[in-house]
Write a protein that binds this DNA or RNA. Structure first.
Lengths: 222, 222
DNA sequence: TCGCGCTTGGTGACAACGTTACTGAACGAT
DNA sequence: ATCGTTCAGTAACGTTGTCACCAAGCGCGA
C-alpha cells in the first residue's frame, strides 16, 4: 500500500524499479511500543528492520549487570549489524530497546537475502550501514580506553541536548551512556554545576552554559 | 593454477562449482612481508584478503599515539570487516599489520561484489565473518569498560602462550594488547612474578605456573 | 494526608588505574 | 669499548572505580 517510505532512505532512492516493487510488496510495516526489547538474550529478530520513526538503543549488558550504550539506530537507518550479530555466536549479550515508539519496515530474512543478491544498490546500502556501525564501535573503544570521563561526559551532554537545553536522564542512565559508574557521573555533574555550566534536578540536567561545556569537550585530542 | 586453497576455508568448501571456478580464476595469491602495513591511514586495499598463512593484527591508534589491538585475522579467515571499514567514513584510524609473513588470496572488489550477488554460500561466509568480528568488538568493549586489568592480563598471557610456555613481547606491546599503559603492565607483571606465576626477561615472559594465572583469569565474571 | 517503600542523588574512604618524570640495565651498531 | 636506543622499574600524584552508607524526592496505598 504505502510504498513511499523508501524515499526516507537516501541509500535506497535509486533502487531498481523491479527490486523496489518486490521490497514494498514483501515487507511489512510494524510498530513497537516505547520500552520494547526488540532483540536481546532470548529474543531473536526474524526480520531486518529499517526505521521510519523513533529510535532504538543498542547496549551491552555485562554479567555483573553494568550497561554501556553502543549506538542508536535513528529514523532512516537500518539495524543490520545487530541482526547479523545473532548469526554467528550465541554468547552475545547485546540488546536493542525502543527508546520511543517505533515504526519500522520489517524485511523477512529470505527477502533480505534475495535483495542482497539482486540489487547492487541494496547491497551498497547494507554494507555502508555496516561500515558506519563498525567505525562507531572503533570510536567507542578509543574513547573508553583513552579519553577522560569529564570530556566524554561534556560531549555526551551536548550530544543529548537536542535543541531543548534539557536532558531527561538519571545519573545512572548517563553512566550507562559512558560505561562508567553512577558515582563518577554524580561527581562530575557536581563539578559542572559548581562551574555554572549546568543546573541539576531530579532526573534531568539543564544546560546553563553550553560554551563552557563545549570548551571542555574540545580538549578532545589535543 | 593452485585452486586447492579453497579447502582451507570451511565456509567455502561447499561453493557451487561454477562460482568456485570464477573465484579461483579471477583472484590472485599475494605474499606480504612481516611488518607490512596492509591498510591504514593513507593505505586502502583494493582487494578482499583471505588469509592462507600468517597472521594480521588490526589495531586502533589514537591521536596521542596510544594503541589498542582490536583483533587478529588468522589463516582460514577473511578480512572483510576492515575492507568495509574503509567504505563509509574517512576518519577511521585503524590499521592492519602483518605480524608474520602472510600468504593470502586477493579478491578484487568487482569480483567480490559479483560473488556476493551470485552465491548464497559466499554471502553466508562473508556475513558470518562480519558477525564474528562484531561480537569480538562487543567483547572488547565490555572488557575494557568493566574488567580488571590484572584479570585481562592473565587471560591475555594464557592466550598468547601457544604451546611454548614463552611469550615474546615487550611490556609496551602487552599494554597495546589491553589498551592500557606500559607502567601498568610492568606493575602487574612484577606482581605476577612475585607470586611465582611467571619469570620475566627482556622482551619475553615465561609462564612458570599456568594454573596460578588461570585461577586469576577465571575470576572473570563471578 | 500520612506513612511506607522505592528510586535517585550525595559523599567519604579507599582501591585500581593512568600519567609524569626519571633512572638504570640491556642491547646493537660502529 | 663507547654511544645511542630500546626496554624495564619505580615513586609520586591525579583520575577513575568500588563500597558503604545516608538523605531527599516521589508514588502509592491505607
Amino acid at each position: 500500500m504505502n510504498a513511499d517510505w523508501i524515499e526516507q532512505f537516501p541509500g535506497l532512492s535509486r533502487l531498481e524499479p523491479a527490486v523496489r516493487d518486490a521490497l514494498t510488496r514483501k515487507s511489512s510495516i510494524v510498530t513497537l511500543r516505547e520500552g520494547s526489547v526488540i532483540f536481546g538474550p532470548g529474543k531473536s529478530p526474524e526480520n531486518l528492520l529499517l526505521l521510519l520513526d523513533g529510535r532504538v538503543r543498542v547496549q551491552q549488558v555485562s554479567e555483573a549487570g553494568r550497561e554501556i550504550v553502543l549506538y542508536r539506530v535513528e529514523a532512516g537507518q537500518s539495524c543490520v549489524l545487530t541482526t547479523a550479530c545473532l548469526l554467528a555466536y550465541e554468547d552475545y549479550s547485546a540488546e536493542g530497546i525502543a527508546e520511543t515508539d517505533v515504526r519500522a519496515v520489517a524485511i523477512p530474512r529470505p527477502v533480505f537475502d534475495d535483495l542482497v543478491a539482486t540489487s547492487v544498490t541494496f547491497r551498497t546500502f547494507i554494507f555502508t550501514a555496516y561500515s558506519r556501525r563498525i567505525t562507531d564501535l572503533f570510536q567507542i573503544i578509543e574513547d573508553i580506553a583513552f579519553q577522560r570521563v569529564d570530556i566524554r561526559l561534556a560531549q555526551k551532554l551536548i550530544d543529548l541536548e537536542r535543541g531543548t537545553g534539557q536532558i531527561k536522564a538519571t545519573h545512572q542512565q548517563l553512566a550507562a551512556e559512558l560505561g562508567t559508574a553512577r558515582e563518577v557521573i554524580s561527581r562530575q555533574l557536581g563539578e559542572f554545576q559548581r562551574r555554572g555550566w549546568i543546573r541539576q534536578s531530579r532526573g534531568s540536567v539543564e544546560i546553563a552554559d553550553q560554551a563552557g561545556l563545549a570548551r571542555l569537550a574540545a580538549l578532545d585530542a589535543v
